[in-house]
Amino acid sequence: MIAIISLLVVVFLSILITRIATIALTHTGLTRESAKFQARSAFSGAGFTTEESEMVVRHPVRRKIVMILILIGNAGIVAAISSLILTFVKQSTDSDLTIRVIFLVTGLLGLWLVASSKWADRWLSIIVERLLNRYTNLNVKDYASLLHLTGEYRLVELNIRKNDWVDGKKLSDIRLRDEGINVLGIRKSDGDYVGNPIGETRIEQKDTLVVYGRIEAIEKVDLRKKGVRGDIDHVKAVKKQKQEVFKEKKKEKKQTG
């Protein structure tokens, strides 16, 4: 039974560590979905085969986070396998074996429910973010305070993939600023960089957009695909941004009044 408890502890710590790494990576400019994928890939040793991995290895802080994840992940996997072996190789009766299996499955199911719970994710993220803000300095850019890169706002790099909503469109067509997102620059697939791009600049597959805005809005654009659904989501995002602007103006009016 001790071996099973040890295994559950290892699994719990694995979930916690990857969650901390995910939030740490978002502090360096990755979207949450990209950070989650890279953190889990590094921890599990699955390897990096995506374009996003290039943004990780080129960035000193991201590279350090990933290296730590790889080291901890290797040790965690070995410990988990060892605990699992000890659980079932020990001589025991059929009834003892059944109890162990039930206990193990129940424990893993409980951890899976906690890991997939939006409520648990939200509160764990808040706690981890506060600890990172208090004990670390992951906003390595010297303009972090100028752009208020805390809380809702982030400076993020977006890799443009095939069938992304912005792929093949001009900046003037997608009107990201109406969603509260500012495109500060575009790194083209051939290596050229377009700073402060104008409306006629066309976004193409394998380009990288440097954007600034609310992280929630940026993540939605990053996941948005071509088609009618994408256009509808854009209209909804524009409407939501107008509501946010109205709330901010109302709040500012109260403060000044």
Rank of each mutant, 00 (worst) to 15 (best):
A3K: 05
I4H: 05
I5S: 09
L7E: 05
V10E: 07
V10I: 08
V11S: 03
V11I: 04
S14M: 06
I15S: 10
L16V: 03
R19L: 07
A21T: 10
T26W: 09
T28Y: 07
G29F: 15
L30C: 12
L30E: 08
A35W: 06
K36G: 09
K36D: 12
F37G: 09
S41G: 00
S41I: 09
A42I: 05
F43E: 09
F43R: 03
A46M: 14
F48N: 10
F48R: 05
T50A: 12
E54F: 13
M55N: 10
M55V: 04
V56H: 06
P60H: 07
R63P: 00
R63F: 02
K64W: 13
I68M: 02
L71D: 04
I72Q: 11
I72W: 09
G73M: 02
G76S: 08
G76F: 10
A79L: 06
L84C: 01
L86K: 14
S92R: 12
T93D: 10
D94T: 13
D96H: 04
T98V: 14
T98P: 00
I99W: 01
I102M: 05
I102W: 02
F103A: 14
V105R: 05
L108F: 07
G110V: 07
L111W: 01
V114M: 13
K118R: 15
W119I: 15
S125W: 07
V128H: 04
V128Y: 07
V128T: 08
E129V: 06
L131N: 11
L132S: 02
T136F: 02
N139K: 15
V140I: 15
D142S: 14
D142P: 03
L146A: 15
T150E: 15
L155Q: 08
V156C: 09
E157N: 05
L158D: 04
L158H: 04
N159E: 09
N159G: 08
K162W: 09
W165S: 02
W165E: 04
K169N: 12
K169L: 12
K169H: 11
K170C: 07
L171A: 11
S172C: 01
D173I: 10
R175T: 07
R177S: 11
D178L: 11
G180D: 05
L184W: 12
L184C: 07
G185W: 05
I186P: 05
G191K: 03
D192V: 12
D192H: 10
Y193N: 03
G195F: 00
V210M: 12
V211G: 02
Y212S: 06
Y212M: 08
A217P: 03
I218A: 00
E219C: 01
V221F: 01
L223C: 00
L223K: 15
L223A: 13
K225M: 10
R229C: 03
R229T: 13
I232W: 04
I232T: 08
I232M: 03
D233L: 10
D233E: 13
V235P: 00
A237Q: 03
K239S: 04
K239G: 05
K240Y: 02
K242I: 06
E244N: 13
F246H: 13
K247P: 00
E248P: 00
K249R: 15
K250T: 14
E252A: 09
K254V: 15
T256L: 10
G257F: 14
